[in-house]
């Protein structure tokens, strides 16, 4: 096998690696997930921000929104903080302030695993949470953000 063949093999390998890593990047999209009984199919990014900042507290049908979040350091948390343009400390202080303002009962529910996110969605019909698209499980209903689903170019939450 000549030098050219080896070079070609290396290029082919790099191409494969590149394709695989691109697929991984798409998989890092964060899906917005609601309970299976929720009729919402699409949210604007602005509405999503209002929901996760507690400014919008009920679904169009009047059902109370229950925020379910992941803990500090998770990819879902990173995207949530990016959405709200806050640091982790800002987020903590913001929710303490929201409670004192009477705008919230408490900081949103924090769960430590995807399994518990799923359980929370089952327990609270008005629940909404962010899930790494790789971890979306059967029974989780992914809704569109500005008409886009996770994985497509231009999806807002990644």
């Amino acid at each position: 096998m000549g030098v050219k063949s080896i070079t070609t093999l290396l290029l082919l390998g790099l191409t494969v690696v590149s394709l695989v890593s691109r697929g991984t990047a798409q998989a890092e999209d964060i899906a917005v997930v609601v309970s299976s009984g929720n009729s919402a199919t699409n949210l604007s990014l602005g509405d999503l921000r209002k929901i996760f900042s507690g400014a919008k507290r009920s679904w169009p049908g009047g059902q109370r929104i229950k925020l379910v979040t992941r803990g500090s350091g998770c990819p879902e948390r990173v995207v949530l903080l990016k959405l709200l343009a806050m640091s982790e400390d800002d987020y903590k202080r913001y929710w303490t302030a929201q409670v004192f303002r009477g705008e919230a009962d408490a900081e949103p529910l924090i769960v430590p695993s995807v399994g518990m996110q799923k359980e929370a969605l089952n327990l609270f019909p008005g629940a909404i949470t962010l899930v790494n698209v790789r971890d979306v499980k059967p029974g989780m209903r992914v809704i569109k953000i500005d008409g886009q689903v996770p994985g497509v170019a231009g999806y807002a939450l990644r």
Partner: peptide, 24 residues
């Protein structure tokens, strides 16, 4: 509403830690 704000995580003896750091 003011539901328990945390679903208590299982102890270390009961399960392995979550795959990502979750300070709960």
């Amino acid at each position: 509403g003011p539901s328990p704000q945390l679903i208590p995580p299982l102890s270390a003896e009961q399960t392995t830690p979550p795959p990502t750091p979750a300070d709960v």
